[in-house]
Structure formats: structure tokens, C-alpha cells
Simulated scan of single mutants.
Amino acid sequence: FRRTYAETLNSSPVVLEDAISDASPDIIVTPSDYSTQLTITDADRETVYEGSVTGFRSYLFAENGTFDAKLVVTASDSAAEDSSSVTGTETWQFRFTVGIKPSVTLCTPTVQQGSVAAVRVGSTMSQTEPTLTGPLESTGFVRAANGWICYLPIPWNAETGNTELTVTADGYTETLTLSVRAASYSYKDYSAKSQLMSPYIGADDAPDAVRKLLTTDSGEIQWAVGGFVQPFLDSFDTPLLYGMTEYVGRSYSERSTNYGYGGRTSTNVVIKPKKSKDSMIVPASGHVLLAEDLGGSYGYTVVIDHGAGLRSIFYGLTALDVEAGDDVKQGQLLGTSGRTVVAELRIGTVPINPLLVWRGQCDGLKYY
């Protein structure tokens, strides 16, 4: 009673309605002792897989798209359980779409002014960099563990409330809602301009030698090992804090309500070490982009690239222990301070609060 099956092959593949959302889907043929031959071609008719169904279990699709499959199943005499089993081959042809959406996560749903938000995107099938649009500046996504990450610096005066961010990856778009909360800033009042903090280096006062480095391509994330520490081993004072506003000549009523015009707000930290010419250390590993005397109120200046657009800037040193081009490690001797040091942290061109980062209070930079 044994029969051999013969078929007339239809060249039009069956189209599967549901997209495949797994990079490594399985095809199951029963009984398992049937032999199989599977061939999968992409939209350009290039063969992306050829082999058995068992071997296909370890195959990973490298990109989204439409694919054609040809599956030939063979039942031979050795596979027949009894003399009445059917032997021969049968062929299936089907077309399917691989549409794998990468994961998109807002790591920091709520963040304060002066800090950093982080958005993570899982591995993309196309291996192309995701994009992010919204009202906040960023340096874009960089490679991270199992995907991509983007750091968003939150300016000291960022508008509070909900902000929408749009992430596009592998053709998929997702909208995220970031909540920005107000930070608590202090202020100082003076009766004369001579009392203002000096040196003062505002956000727009960076010298050309530093400014041109803020938009250059940045390297890989360097602070993933060890994070950040304060640049002084000894304690220090901070006569001018990030976000602190200095006023001259405000009236009593203006001071009592903290209202007035003409104040200047610091976007960095002025540090006064306990002893002049104190030793400074590298706060986090990175690559030295600049180490030279820029003269005037800048003095000896160091710029360290920590990767992902994040850079440390120090003004006012009196001696340097690093050179441009050096790869430095956290805790390495950086140089000698002057009477005061102006310390900045920027992501791209946007200054953030150095104290939050040095003290481990900036959650966004804990994702990498």
C-alpha cells in the first residue's frame, strides 16, 4: 500500500499576514525525522539562508524587510513508520515580512534643571543610528551596551513641565514625555560691580580654542568604569555655584521678592581650594583635547573629552601635568590650581551642573 507523493508546484508563494517580530524565528516540521531543505532569499533575490530547518534555529535576521522562503520536506523509506506511510517530497513556498521594532526607553522620566536625561534604544536591525527630535539640544545617539543611548543636557533655565521627545529607529517612531522640574538656585546681591565674582566665564564667554572643541566628534563613553569624582582630593569652597545669579544695586523690595533685572547667572562652578596651588585630579577617564595657557582670565586651561559629547573644562590652573592628546584615567594628576578654578561640564555646547555629576546625583549619566 506504500505510495509516493508527487506534486505540481505553484510558483506563487503564500503570503503570511502577520509580520515576524523575532530576529530568530523557528520553523517546526513534524514528524521531526523528516528531512528538510530551507532556502530564504531577500527582496533582491539574494540567498540569506540555505540549510535545514534545524540549522535555521540559530539564524539571526540582520535587517527588516520582505523575504521569500522555499521549504522542501522529504519523507523517505527510512522515515516511514510502516508500509502504509507516504514517501516522497512536498514543497511549500511562502513570503513573509520581518518587522522587528527596537525597544525605546526613557531612562529618566523626571529630571531637574542642570541635570541630564537619557534615552536608550535597543539594537537596531539596520545598525543605523536612531534619531531624536524635540526642543532640547543633544549630540545624538552613541553606541552603548546592547544598543544606543542619547544624553540630553537640561539647561539651568529649561522650561519646566512636560516636554515631548520623538525617537525614530528602523523606521519606527515613538514619542516620549520627559518631565523637567525646577532646580533650587541661590543668588547674591552686591552694592558695587567690583564685588562681582572674578574671574567670571559665562556660557558665551568660552574662548575660541575651547568653543571649537564643543562641536567636534566625540569618542566612546569613558565614565562607565568608575564614574566621576570631584577634581580635588581636599575639601573646597564654591563661592559661585551653577545657576547662582549675581545682582548689583537691587532695591530692598527686589531683594525680598528675588526680583530684578540685569543679574548674571553662572553656568559653571567657581572653586576656591582650601590652600592656593592645590593639586587637581582627573574627575573621570577621557582624552585630553586641550592643555595650554590661554592667557587673561582663562589661564592654563584643560578640556577633557569623556565621550558621548560630554566634556570637562577647567580654567585658572597655574601648572599642567597633562598634554593635549593624552588618554587620562580618573584620579590621575591633572595640574595645580590657582587661587580659584572655574570648572565646567558640557554636553555639546550646553553647560550642566558639575556638582551633581561629581557627587553622583546625575541619574542620566548612570546609564551607558
Rank of each mutant, 00 (worst) to 15 (best):
T89M: 08
Q93W: 03
T131E: 11
T89I: 03
R2M: 11
G260E: 03
Y252T: 14
S194E: 14
G147P: 09
K193Y: 15
T265S: 11
P231Q: 01
N64A: 10
E137T: 13
G171E: 10
V104M: 12
I20G: 01
S21D: 11
V121F: 08
Q330R: 12
R95I: 01
G227F: 05
S198W: 10
A343M: 08
N146F: 14
G262H: 10
S58L: 08
T110H: 04
T175Y: 01
S126K: 06
E344V: 06
L132N: 05
G134F: 05
Y315G: 08
Y5L: 15
S52H: 00
D42I: 08
R2K: 14
L71S: 05
R57F: 06
I313D: 03
T349W: 07
L294D: 00
T97P: 05
K272Q: 15
G226C: 04
A75N: 13
E159L: 07
F94Q: 01
F56G: 01
V350I: 15
G286K: 01
N64F: 03
S276T: 15
A79T: 12
V180P: 00
I100F: 04
C150W: 02
S179D: 12
G55F: 06
W223Y: 08
L317M: 15
T8L: 14
G325Y: 01
I221M: 02
A158I: 00
R95F: 03
G307I: 01
Y172V: 07
E164R: 11
T89C: 02
I154K: 08
V119L: 03
P135R: 12
S58W: 06
C150V: 07
S279D: 11
G99Q: 12
L38H: 07
S297Y: 09
D18F: 04
A169R: 05
A343C: 10
S251L: 07
L152F: 02
E63Q: 15
E344T: 05
F96N: 04
G147S: 09
S179R: 12
V142T: 14
E17R: 13
I313W: 02
I154C: 09
T160D: 00
